[in-house]
Design a protein around this nucleic acid. Structure first.
Length: 341
DNA sequence: GGCCCTCTTTAGGGCCTT
């Protein structure tokens, strides 16, 4: 029986609060962003500000704990130090981490929810927007090709923060890592026996997202250039593992949002994550091009843009796409490619 | 590969993701 380490970090000790009105939510953290940027405390200020609200909101639902199978408390405790180091220096977290142990044979059942137009449902019913949980994510891979390359690191963070709000893990791609120079993730790091393969990560990833959204709710997963890169990569990797993405997952690409923000606000910035980060003076809290480091940056940028654009959850949902739609796009693209060849 | 922009649309260069 193999124990797989994951890192579920709790960085933003933020209570879940009403989130469907983004425009009303962001000012709490971003109206003075330019003055705060440049300090390494932007995120913590955000956290601290919201911490002050603790208790101010009553929880409307109970977050389901991530389902795990363990080998007993002692073993978990024994593994804790090992697992903390197994985060491979991803970030210099100062928060407590919990461990997730899962056996290879664990059988987590995912209902295959029939597809329907979730966006229309949410847009037509404002109450459903309250059921949307926004999660920012980023992938590090061995290259740009979803067919030839593999994921080496995954990081997600629920925008609300709170306990177990983050998920991050290295992934053993089972092949060489030719672009270590880009993200600093080496073959040696991912070949560590504690680093899981994608087929082992997949059910835990699904379970993590499920644990973050409300019962009967939806997850809106945000990534920069996600439509062209992260989402097709994720779909392809999960499909290799025989896993279909749940139909209550929606995806949002923050790149078009950045273009819109730059255009409408007359911002002089490139649309890349680095360009936006530099423009806003956001200090890195870890190496660039590591998944969680980029997630942190994107969260700040995303909040700034949605605040400036007065975006609501409903408007973000309107711009989102489903895995099913992306899969169709990918199929069409593959057909075109074959015709070309 | 997909999207956007323009010195465009019967095209092509540049940007974005690792």
């Amino acid at each position: 029986m193999r124990i797989i380490p994951m890192c579920f970090s709790s960085i933003l000790q933020v209570p879940r609060c009403r989130f469907h009105t983004l425009a009303n939510f962001w000012p709490e953290s971003f109206h003075s962003l330019p003055n705060k940027c440049g300090s390494n405390s932007t995120f913590r200020l955000h956290s601290a500000k919201l911490d002050g609200l603790e208790g101010g909101y009553s929880r409307r639902w109970i977050r389901r704990p991530v389902s795990t199978k363990t080998e007993g408390t002692n073993k978990i405790t024994q593994n804790k130090n090992k697992l903390t180091s197994a985060s491979h220096g991803v970030l210099e977290e100062t928060v407590s981490t919990s461990t997730l142990n899962i056996t290879k044979t664990e059988n987590i059942e995912y209902r295959n929810i029939p597809y329907f137009d979730i966006r229309r449902e949410i847009l037509e019913n404002n109450d459903l927007a309250k059921l949307v949980t926004v999660i920012v994510f980023d992938l590090e891979t061995t290259g740009f090709s979803r067919t030839e390359d593999r994921i080496v690191e995954i990081a997600l963070r629920d925008l609300h923060g709170g306990e177990n709000s983050t998920f991050q893990t290295l992934v053993n791609p089972g092949r060489s890592v030719p672009n270590t120079i880009v993200h600093g993730i080496s073959k040696c790091m991912v070949e560590n026996p504690n680093v899981p393969r994608m087929k082992e990560v997949a059910p835990i990833l699904l379970q993590y997202v499920k644990s973050r959204h409300k019962p009967g709710g939806y997850a809106l997963l945000v990534a920069h250039n996600g439509r062209a890169f992260d989402v097709p990569f994720l779909i392809t990797e999960l499909n290799r593992c025989g896993v279909e993405l749940p139909s209550n997952w929606l995806f949002l690409d923050s790149l078009p949002l950045a273009r819109k923000w730059i255009k409408t606000k007359g911002v002089k910035s490139r649309t890349s994550l680095q360009g936006l980060r530099e423009h806003l003076g956001i200090k890195l809290e870890g190496p660039a091009h590591r998944a969680m480091s980029d997630v942190r940056v994107l969260i700040i940028i995303f909040q700034k843009m949605t605040f400036d654009l007065k975006a609501t959850v409903a408007s973000l949902v309107a711009d989102s796409f489903t895995a099913s739609e992306k899969k169709n796009e990918m199929k069409e693209s593959d057909v075109k490619k074959k015709k070309k060849n």
